[in-house]
């Protein structure tokens, strides 16, 4: 059910992941790193969750980190890329059509999935309605500065050799937008933080190989369906070396990961007081403070 005006081509994503599945272990460095950091955040919540839904195409990695955090009784994997595995506690479903009953879940965990989602507000809103009151959503997704170096050199190389560019690296959400979105949808107490993970590779080709191995190849609907010309790739690799090379002959690649937590509303959560409900004037508070300071 792919709409042609969607930003991302979900079928392409399934294909890329299917291709990456076999040798994923060789390229799981980034997801393992992010998973570890997500697990710490899960532990820090200091809560126990009865039923959780976990979204990550690498269900084994997600199970491992949830096991490590040790505060979930039942983890159900939401398999959204139609890949087969024998995990019994899983649901196979469309990425953007949740088959989950309202107020039935205590926790949603999303690990590096939602940067490929077309309708992020829709997915967040479906998550909120599936959560019980005081339920938690916890997620990690790639943010705006991810692969900024590669994006720059590919655009430049394509401009030089072809005189035009094709879309290659997806639009990522930024922190402010995500924060506003969570609040607008009705989540409370959102906390968003960014980790920048710098990785070095021997050269741009190795980096591109890794991205492919991660199953994260470009799946923009408007991507060029042809193979990239060899001269463009070589030019981009050269530019990459010149601009972002390290002193020991490798190249730098930036991955920016946005971590977010937010809660389904509950009366026990702290809330701002109603406007006009204050009983103490600001003026006297300031005067009082000045008085103390001048003593």
């Amino acid at each position: 059910m792919e709409k042609s005006d969607s930003i991302f081509d979900q079928n392409a994503l399934f294909q890329h992941r299917k291709r990456a599945k076999k040798e994923f272990k060789l390229h799981d460095f980034m997801i393992q790193e992010v998973a570890g950091r997500l697990s710490e955040r899960l532990e820090e919540t200091n809560r126990n969750f009865d039923t959780a839904i976990g979204i990550c195409w690498q269900n084994r990695i997600l199970r491992e980190i949830c096991h490590r955090a040790n505060n979930i009784d039942k983890l159900i994997i939401y398999n959204n890329c139609k890949t087969k595995n024998s995990d019994k506690n899983q649901i196979i479903a469309e990425p953007e059509l949740f088959p989950i009953a309202p107020k039935s879940i205590d926790l949603f965990v999303s690990l590096l999935e939602w940067h490929w989602i077309n309708d992020l507000p829709g997915v967040l809103s479906q998550s909120l309605s599936a959560l019980k009151s005081d339920g938690l959503i916890l997620g990690a997704m790639f943010g705006g500065n991810t692969l900024t170096e590669l994006r720059t050199v590919l655009i430049e190389a394509e401009m030089i050799t072809k005189g035009g560019v094709t879309p290659r690296i997806p639009p990522f959400v930024d922190v402010e937008t995500l924060g506003n979105l969570l609040l607008r949808i009705g989540f409370t107490l959102p906390v968003i933080d960014i980790d920048t993970i710098n990785v070095t590779y021997p050269n741009a080709f190795k980096l591109m190989h890794e991205i492919r191995g991660m199953g994260e190849t470009n799946c923009l609907t408007k991507r060029s369906k042809k193979f990239t010309r060899r001269d463009i790739l070589y030019r981009a690799a050269e530019l990459y070396n010149d601009k972002y090379g390290t002193s020991d002959g490798r190249i730098n690649a930036t991955f920016q990961v946005i971590f977010f937590t937010a809660w389904a509303p509950h009366h026990s959560q702290p809330k701002p007081k109603k406007r006009g409900s204050g009983k103490y004037s600001l003026e006297s508070a300031i005067n009082n403070f000045e008085g103390i300071k001048n003593k």
Partner: peptide
């Protein structure tokens, strides 16, 4: 199907 899974499932189209 696991009983817990059954508890949380609804139709994705009609909910």
């Amino acid at each position: 199907i696991d009983s817990k899974l059954l508890e949380v499932l609804v139709c994705p189209l009609s909910k």
